[in-house]
Computed example of a mutant assay.
Amino acid sequence: MRVEIWSDITCPWCYVGKARFEKGLAAFAHRDDVEVVHRSFELDPHRPKDDTAPVLEMLAKKYGRTLDEARAMEAHVASSARSEGLGYRTEGRDHGNTFDVHRLLHLAKARGRQGELLDLAYRANFAEERSVFDAETLVALGVEAGLDETEVRSVLADGSAYADDVRQDEREAAELGASGVPFFVLDRRYGVSGGQPAEVFTQALEQAWQGRALQPLGGAEADACGPDGCEVPRA
């Protein structure tokens, strides 16, 4: 069985949802027969490549909130992340265009290192003092994931490298009805949206394995990120 996960590295619920899915998968009896493939989804595709901004300032501007209210929004997400054993910095993070990150993730997929790079990129973006919008940081992350440095630099220097792969992922997400992430598709028959609890993922995997009907390409509401931002309580 194949599970495809559409996500973006700047999406906090993708970060949390990945951890929850992995816990759900670990509890699934047929986990060794599940292939997990990560797909690209840009939350801010029209943002200029060199336009980065502090996350708190971006949130305040996007939602028309004060910086203190933006901090409260981040604190909510941080609490969910930490409950899953994940590191999360509520200040000092950047927000920007993730196209290069996705292109590099496709290189990593081709080299069998996609999972390693995705974990490193999430950790760098949410838990560490490292900006994934800096080219040298991306090179370092690629090397840490086991990729060849020369090849990483070559891909980052050539904006067309793996660009079609990213766009194809995004077209498929649209065709499947995904308007936000994380978005999980099981065997191209069933879908689960949002950072659901681990037990929901286990149940979805069991139902898909047995061929039982899940709610097509949807599921119970859960925290997610989409074109209008990330769903968090208005503190």
Rank of each mutant, 00 (worst) to 15 (best):
R2H: 12
R2N: 13
R2S: 11
I5D: 02
C11A: 14
P12C: 12
C14G: 11
V16W: 10
G24W: 04
L25T: 09
A26W: 06
A29H: 14
A29C: 07
H30L: 11
H30T: 07
R31K: 15
D32K: 15
H38S: 08
R39Y: 03
E42T: 02
L43V: 04
D44T: 10
P45E: 10
R47M: 12
P48I: 03
D50Y: 03
D50A: 15
D51M: 13
T52E: 04
A53R: 13
A53S: 12
P54W: 00
L56P: 02
E57N: 10
L59P: 01
A60K: 02
K61D: 14
T66W: 05
L67C: 06
D68L: 11
A70M: 03
V77T: 08
V77A: 12
V77S: 04
A78W: 09
G85Y: 06
G85H: 10
L86D: 06
E91L: 14
H95W: 13
H95E: 14
G96A: 13
N97I: 10
F99Y: 14
V101W: 01
V101S: 13
H102S: 12
L105Y: 07
A108D: 08
A110M: 10
G115H: 10
L118Y: 00
A124G: 07
N125G: 03
N125P: 02
N125S: 09
N125Y: 15
E128F: 01
E129R: 14
A135Y: 07
L138I: 05
V143Q: 04
A145E: 03
L147K: 08
E149A: 15
A161D: 05
D164K: 14
R171I: 10
E172Y: 04
E175Q: 14
G180L: 03
G180F: 01
P182T: 00
F183D: 00
F184Y: 11
F184K: 00
R189F: 03
Y190H: 12
V192H: 00
S193C: 05
G194Q: 02
G195W: 01
P197D: 06
A198I: 06
F201H: 08
A204L: 04
E206G: 04
G211F: 11
L214W: 04
Q215Y: 14
G218W: 03
A220T: 11
E221N: 12
A222C: 09
C225N: 03
G226F: 07
C230T: 05
V232I: 15
V232A: 13
P233E: 12
